[in-house]
């Protein structure tokens, strides 16, 4: 007699596909957050302290990317890269798109927090004989980084959510893997809920991590 397959049974069958999707989502998000943060730190510094020739390209980059939907950005990289003679995989194209998006946001976060530091801090650094670089490293950035932490966590979770858009260019991240599993067993509600739960787990882990760091670096 035919037995109705249970959800747990189907989950067991799909475990490898879903695990692979989960890992892909984590990987491309982590890569984008990491590279985007590096770009953003640099961009924020240039936007705050750079001369006009440094600020201009970053201002253009930030305004352009922030004013464009991530979806369009991912598609643009995916289709434009080969047209420009750059052969990259869908995963790479997606990671580049997310990185550009993350970098533009972090640039503005860093700029905002650096500009919020009272001018007297840099002057006090100068007054004891610190060079600009030393002031930056020992006085300004330690204060700015404490400021950006909550907003940076927020941006990072946005990147994880935006990584679902990579399904459109055929990257088998968690959402696309889930859709493929559903196409096989038609358990739409169960598997979408499960995917949602996994995304929540990733973001909640980032939030917990952020809160831990915030607690550790909090000033009395």
């Amino acid at each position: 007699m035919y037995e109705q397959p249970t959800w747990l049974h189907e989950l067991w069958i799909a475990r490898e596909a879903l695990w692979g999707g989960f890992l892909t989502s984590v990987q491309c998000s982590a890569l984008a957050i990491l590279c985007g943060t590096v770009i953003g730190m640099f961009g924020g510094l240039v936007l705050t302290y750079g001369n006009v020739w440094g600020r201009l390209p970053f201002r253009l980059y930030v305004d352009l990317i922030r004013g464009t939907p991530v979806f369009v950005l991912v598609l643009a990289v995916f289709y434009m890269a080969p047209a420009l003679g750059w052969q990259i995989s869908a995963f790479q194209a997606g990671a580049v798109g997310l990185t550009l998006f993350c970098g533009s946001h972090v640039s503005e976060i860093v700029r905002g927090s650096l500009q919020a530091i009272p001018r007297g801090q840099l002057e006090a650094g100068k007054a004891i004989g610190l060079t600009f670089r030393q002031s930056l490293g020992y006085v300004l950035l330690p204060q700015a980084l404490r400021q950006i932490l909550p907003t940076w966590v927020n941006s990072s979770t946005e990147i994880v959510k935006a990584s679902t858009l990579l399904s459109v260019i055929g990257v088998a991240e968690l959402l696309l893997s889930t859709q493929q599993v559903i196409a096989r067993n038609f358990m739409t509600l169960q598997f979408y809920l499960f995917a949602g739960f996994l995304f929540f787990v990733i973001n909640y882990a980032i939030e917990l991590l952020g809160r831990q760091i915030e607690k550790r670096v909090a000033l009395p």
């Binding site: 009272p118 801090q121 006090a124 650094g125 007054a127 006085v139 330690p142 204060q143 404490r146 000033l219």
Partner: peptide, 9 residues
Amino acid sequence: FQQFNLFPH
């Protein structure tokens, strides 16, 4: 300085 400008961190 008038505003002390100690490093708060």
